[in-house]
Nucleic acid binder design. Structure first.
Lengths: 182, 182, 182, 182
DNA sequence: TCATAATCGAGACGGTACGTCCCGTCTTCCT
DNA sequence: AGGAAGACGGGACGTACCGTCTCGATTATGA
């Protein structure tokens, strides 16, 4: 027997989806709670019951969008793994919620912190795993400062995306990974 | 002969300064045009006469804040020059306007584009000059993709600043430059 | 059982009363919706929800002020009844809302029309009743054009009030009624 | 040789005419000084040099419009003279400036007073002359209160015009004069 | 005849109120 | 009982005019 989702839970997903939809059309500033309520068919009060601020909804929406965590595939080469992960990241950033998440991060320090622990760190952990595997295999030299290397991989992606308004493509990412890996 | 600044010019600076001040206290969303008008002693209409959107004022404020362009000093080593430039960048980002500029960039594509041409590109040009100087001196290998290298330098700075909410310090920057330069 | 007044109704009266108050201090042009909102403790949006224009509020305020309809008293003489009714009219006109109502009427034709049907006509009907009673009793000749006679009674009141800025007193009204009645 | 009107005088007429024109299109509230300036080709400052308030311009415009004073014609009958004068009055009231003048009078007591002395009183004097002529000729009984009779003539005109939004036509005026004159 | 002053148009400016939109809260009514 | 619907007080929006002000360009004159 299929457990029917509780009223509350059903509502939450509808609201979050409405948010994702709207953010494909307008940017974060222009997003209004009233629009989310209207599109999702929920009452405003319901929104405020679960989220304190607009940014919190966006955070949840972003997390929902990027639910599936990229996972290290030991069968592929290290470089291929890196490339795949950065492509996945690019994909998420491209969406309306992705971009809005960036906006939120620049404005609300506490959400930035939550983004760091709940989104960034897990992915970084995965990347670290890859790096370590590379070192173990001897494919990569072992005198690296992990954090700096990771920044050199992630940084340019966000940098291009946010500041240069340029979506990094496969070619760019390959060049980047090769250059970082030497 | 001292060029007597026009009424308009004086006002513009006062408005821009008021904006910079306020942005030390609140973030971009919370910044209101009415507050800027009030603090600068200007009428709202005056603001709208010169700027179409709040973001445009912030852009001008940011440009005013970071007026002085870092300049390549050939007497110092290449690395030192890099380090100095990235520190300068960090300094600007740290300010309220700096952070707000990041917010604006994530929201308004056209301002992002203007930021690219009016702020980023000149600085990148300076950095490219340094890179070329390094290659000429033989300090740096000559098979690099310039753009990717520059992204590897700038990217991590913005990345740490925006996403990790961490202000890169001298140590970090030195490590970064060394790693990139090999 | 006391019908508990709806939230809306309570607000309406408060707003209308605030309007009446303010109009004792300033004239119609100087009356601002913001002032009404402030004095009544309502939000501007609430005002606009119920009334489209400033003039509409003033109309309602005027109607509230002159709620009690003068009623023909068959025990008194015809003349006394006339005098009493014109005095009542004068009383209303004297107030701030009264004067403002005159302003509105000169400006907005549709409100003038509403004023005619909702305020003037009922009072005229009452006056006609009196006239008819007078004719029936033989106190008044029966070859009169009712409308013209009524205009000769009301007209001078408004005329003195609006154009001569003179408030008709008992003496004047008595003279007027006597002259009209012959 | 035609004396070329001074710059100032020429401007004044142009401004006043512009006002009259605009008042055919919009009502007093909606009339803006900027519009008058624009239409007349004058600078705003010029307007403020000669008139303190919008209402003052309207007053001048009204006086310009009704420059020609109706004059008592002893060859015609008393009644005909009355009828003619009231028709003239109606004509002026019908215009945009006329109606606006009424608005102004309800709002600004000092202008109302000026209207009384500069416009109303001269016309009343003329009417009084007619009344006196009638009495002298024995056409009219001699025990009248002049002021009340005049109010009974003028009052209904203004009353119908302003409050009933009805423009008194020849028939009405004839009936009125006959009724008042008995 | 031409400098010199007065006058004017144009419109920027600091303000105030407009009418609208959305906020976050709170009440009502329906299911 | 719980939620949608949406009224409410509040505050910022972007606009329109206010009345004051500076700026040139245009007259118009008297040295």
């Amino acid at each position: 027997m299929i457990e029917p989702k509780a009223r509350g839970a059903r509502n939450r997903t509808e609201i979050v989806n409405a948010t994702i939809e709207i953010l494909e059309e307008v940017n974060f500033s222009t997003l209004t709670i009233e629009a989310v309520a209207a599109r999702s068919g929920a009452g405003k009060a319901t929104l405020y019951r679960w989220w304190k601020r607009k940014s919190d909804i966006v955070f949840d929406a972003f997390m929902a969008k990027s639910e599936t965590l990229f996972e290290f595939d030991p069968k592929k080469s290290i470089d291929e793994n890196f490339i795949q992960q950065l492509l996945t990241l690019t994909e998420v950033l491209k969406s309306g919620v992705g971009r809005s998440m960036m906006t939120v991060i620049t404005e609300e320090k506490d959400i930035a912190a939550e983004f760091l622990t709940a989104y960034l760190t897990p992915r970084r952990a995965e990347t670290k795993k890859m790096l370590q595997a590379g070192i173990d295999k001897g494919e990569i030299r072992d005198d690296l400062d992990f954090d700096v290397v990771l920044d050199m991989l992630y940084g340019p992606i966000y940098f291009n995306f946010i500041l240069c308004n340029r979506i990094p493509d496969q070619t760019y990412i390959e060049k980047l990974v090769r250059q970082v890996m030497r």
